[in-house]
Design a protein around this nucleic acid. Structure first.
Length: 197
DNA sequence: TGCCTGATGTTCT
DNA sequence: GAACATCAGGCAC
């Protein structure tokens, strides 16, 4: 994992993370690897961001060094995970919205009690599949049991942007990034989507 | 097929 | 006390 890369502005880092891998080592030693296909950027001066109102016990991790995991609990039943970006003291992070299984797919299916794209095509779904919970909040993504590994896009893959999903604030900002055409991408592929290229 | 709503608990005002 | 970066089941069409 290249921490210097992640210390850049969150809007620079978010599209870069598409195509990267997450390798999860479970308690029994088994492993699963997934590929990031959809993210959203959240920065401090952004009304939709948890860090907008400054540092709190919950958001403390977002203000820490880049390359750490920020896990939060929402709607009473779901976890979502973010990769902290930017310099120390700045509350910015990239929300991982969807991933594509690369290895250990049967483990992910077992965790989700189902098969198909539904196992990881949403922020809370992928957390359930990878068993990401509050215990991993503040985890260093350079180390097991959850590692962030650099990856690349295929030559035929294109990055698209759109407004973010599921928020009530700052909905005008096109800070959602995803790989066009990937079946694991969640949410609408609507006409406001724009190609980055 | 697509919309609507209930479940559920942490966080902040 | 209300809002909340969600999901999945149920129901109407």
């Amino acid at each position: 994992m290249d921490r210097k890369l992640l210390e850049q502005d969150v809007l620079t880092v978010a599209p870069l993370l598409l195509g990267w891998h997450l390798r999860r080592t479970f308690a029994d030693g088994s492993q699963a690897t997934v590929r990031i296909v959809e993210v959203e950027a959240y920065r401090q001066n952004d009304a939709a961001s948890h860090s907008y109102r400054g540092k709190t016990p919950r958001t403390e991790v977002m203000f820490g060094p880049a390359g750490f995991l920020y896990v939060y609990f929402t709607y009473g039943m779901h976890y979502c995970c973010n990769v902290v970006t930017g310099p120390v003291g700045e509350g910015a992070a990239v929300l991982i919205r969807a991933v594509e299984p690369v290895a250990g797919q049967e483990i992910l299916q077992a965790h989700r009690h189902m098969a198909g794209v539904e196992i990881t095509n949403g922020p809370a779904k992928l957390c359930q599949a990878l068993t990401i919970n509050r215990q991993l909040n503040g985890h260093n993504l350079a180390d097991a049991p959850l590692e962030l590994l650099p990856g690349t896009l295929q030559p035929n893959e294109q990055i698209m942007t759109s407004p973010r999903i599921g928020i009530k604030q700052a909905t005008d900002k096109p800070w959602r990034f995803y790989i066009a055409g990937n079946p694991y991408v969640s949410g609408p592929k609507n006409p406001v989507d724009k190609s980055l290229s």
